[in-house]
């Protein structure tokens, strides 16, 4: 999971949990990086006022009128930021592409629960446990690499980095009227 030169150091052990190799891979080679023509796509911007990070989410839904049943035909990520915010957005884009808005919302809730964010108005559906244990899927979407972000929860300051892309995705759903 980690390079040899990054192991065997006591003072780095906490960091190894945060910077898993898969996270650094997404940071160095972000998936779905770029832009989509607006319109027909929609564009949403998210900021982390603490660190100045910025994420832009371009969304192309098959038919926004279908609301939560609309399918995410395409998604692109722009902006700049730290490895946690950028890799989380990259993983998110790979996870939700080709799935419905409803599934993406479901995954967002579950991801935030993994980050120890429990939103009363969204909660009550047991989403907290869905990413625990051996659960490989949330709703219809495969978890994939997202599990690697679990370590972020040990670094509370970085939770906002990890959730920036997800909040921007939700904003994109609102902007596109779905």
């Amino acid at each position: 999971m980690v390079n040899d030169h990054r192991t065997g150091r006591d003072d780095m052990s906490g960091l190894e949990d945060l910077y898993r190799e898969i996270i650094l891979d997404h940071y160095r080679s972000p998936r779905n990086r770029g832009e989509l023509p607006v319109p027909p796509a929609t564009r949403a911007e998210g900021f982390n006022p603490l660190c100045g990070d910025e994420i832009v989410v371009y969304l192309q839904l098959d038919d926004p009128a279908k609301g939560d049943d609309a399918v995410i035909d395409d998604i692109r990520i722009g902006g700049q930021g730290c490895s946690i915010s950028q890799s989380s957005a990259s993983m998110m884009s790979a996870a939700v592409k080709g799935h419905t808005v409803a599934d993406a919302r479901h995954l967002t809730r579950a991801f935030k629960a993994m980050m120890s964010i429990h939103e009363g108005e969204l909660g009550g559906d047991g989403s907290e446990s869905e990413l625990d244990g051996d659960a490989a899927e949330v709703g219809e979407i495969a978890l994939g690499d997202l599990d690697a972000l679990k370590g972020v929860v040990k670094f509370p300051v970085r939770i906002k980095c990890a959730t920036l892309g997800w909040n921007t995705l939700l904003q994109g759903f609102d902007d596109s009227g779905s």
Partner: peptide, 19 residues
């Protein structure tokens, strides 16, 4: 990224500010 840098520095007890 400064945020990542600061995180690693923190593991050495070095406090600098990213942002």
């Amino acid at each position: 990224h400064p945020h990542d840098l600061s995180q690693v520095l923190d593991s050495h007890g070095v406090c600098v500010r990213p942002g």
